[in-house]
Simulated assay, not measured.
Amino acid sequence: MKSFEDLDSLIGSVPFDVVADLRVVDTVRGSAGLLPDVLPGLLSSLRDRARPVSIESSAALDGIVVPRRRAAAVIAGDVERLQGREEQELAGCRDAFDHVAREDRGPLDVDLVLDVHRLLLARTPMPGGRLRRVESVVLDRDPRAARVKRFTPVAVADVPQHLDELIARYRGALTTGRHHPVLLTGLFVLDLVAIRPFTTANGRLARALTPGLLHDAGYDVARYVSLDAAIARSAEAHAAALLDSTADWQDARHDPWPWLRSLVRALADCSDELASLVATARSGRSKQERVRTYVLHHAGRSFRMSDARTALPGVSDQTIRLVLGELRNDGLVEVDGVGRSATWSTVRTR
């Protein structure tokens, strides 16, 4: 809530490095919107690959580690009986992640926050979906390993009001369009963690909500490349940045840029990775399209593999065979013979 009291003063002047990373995020966002038409199925496969990575990475950031094969089975829902607390919490991460990813889950509101937290802990003995009822402090260790207080969240009595106001102000800020949506999402996460609405699993809650908030704001990269995995690669620095940005939060004199810089940098890394995956897919697709164009529009009535190989430098025999197989299945070509002596011919008017 505190971050949204005076946004113009807080984030009105964006540091140059953050601007550069946001430019990367925006550029990839624009190109990704064309992918369903250009590369059908690519986004679906990327989403399927990112999902288990995100769930496992988010759990690991809270110290929840399950052996790889067992974790894969839990995330896939192939385990009849969960073994121990860590598997229970991993399954909760899965359920919360999948709930936020649903297209019909509805907009951000208090009920969504409560539902996601309930799902995170639903398979454990801990009650979820209940706002904190005891006072809390955030502890850390100094260089001498002594436990020291780093941050005091809002008082229990103020949690409901702060949570309501945070959601209202965040949604209102998105509506005005005055500030970058990614920065607003980062501020929402910062304030949510600072409020600490629940006794436990506040970090997991924030990470579960983040891809959904970004999606609602028009940024889907975290659905295709795991943001949690990017965060986990520099977990200590990321956690330190979040803690640094909570200093003086109660008085609205905090510096959000350590946290925002870290979050936007991780999102830019995800965007770079998505762009690389897309470029690779486009390259493979363009070669297949070259083969298809040659066969249907430039090859003779009959041709052999050697003719296609000569006409298509840089295209592997494997790619040529793949496209020929697809065209054969589509009834556009037929083959006579096998191996090098096989003769291919078109069967429809080009």
Results as ranks from 00 to 15, higher is better:
residue 294 Y to E: 04
residue 303 F to D: 01
residue 61 L to T: 11
residue 143 P to A: 06
residue 224 Y to I: 03
residue 127 P to D: 11
residue 67 P to C: 10
residue 16 F to M: 07
residue 93 C to R: 00
residue 22 L to D: 06
residue 128 G to W: 11
residue 212 G to I: 12
residue 133 R to I: 02
residue 104 D to N: 12
residue 294 Y to P: 03
residue 168 A to K: 03
residue 145 A to H: 12
residue 280 T to P: 02
residue 69 R to Y: 09
residue 297 H to R: 15
residue 129 G to P: 01
residue 162 H to R: 15
residue 331 G to K: 06
residue 46 L to V: 00
residue 89 E to A: 11
residue 216 D to L: 10
residue 36 P to N: 02
residue 78 D to L: 15
residue 231 I to F: 11
residue 307 D to K: 10
residue 274 L to V: 07
residue 307 D to T: 08
residue 262 S to W: 04
residue 225 V to S: 03
residue 127 P to G: 00
residue 39 L to I: 13
residue 219 Y to I: 02
residue 116 V to R: 10
residue 334 E to N: 11
residue 4 F to T: 02
residue 101 A to H: 09
residue 151 F to K: 03
residue 260 L to I: 05
residue 94 R to N: 05
residue 293 T to S: 14
residue 159 V to N: 06
residue 187 L to W: 09
residue 100 V to Q: 05
residue 115 D to P: 00
residue 275 A to W: 04
residue 255 D to R: 09
residue 173 A to R: 05
residue 303 F to K: 05
residue 75 I to N: 10
residue 203 G to E: 04
residue 111 D to E: 15
residue 88 Q to Y: 04
residue 35 L to V: 15
residue 284 G to H: 12
residue 136 S to D: 02
residue 303 F to S: 04
residue 99 H to I: 03
residue 44 S to H: 13
residue 277 L to T: 01
residue 48 D to V: 07
residue 55 I to R: 07
residue 331 G to S: 07
residue 115 D to L: 11
residue 254 H to M: 10
residue 275 A to T: 02
residue 300 G to V: 08
residue 174 L to F: 00
residue 12 G to D: 06
residue 194 A to L: 06
residue 205 L to R: 05
residue 239 A to E: 09
residue 126 M to C: 00
residue 294 Y to V: 07
residue 134 V to F: 09
residue 68 R to M: 05
residue 301 R to S: 14
residue 173 A to S: 14
residue 22 L to Q: 11
residue 146 A to S: 08
residue 156 V to F: 01
residue 297 H to T: 15
residue 71 A to C: 07
residue 67 P to V: 02
residue 123 R to N: 13
residue 45 S to Y: 06
residue 79 V to P: 03
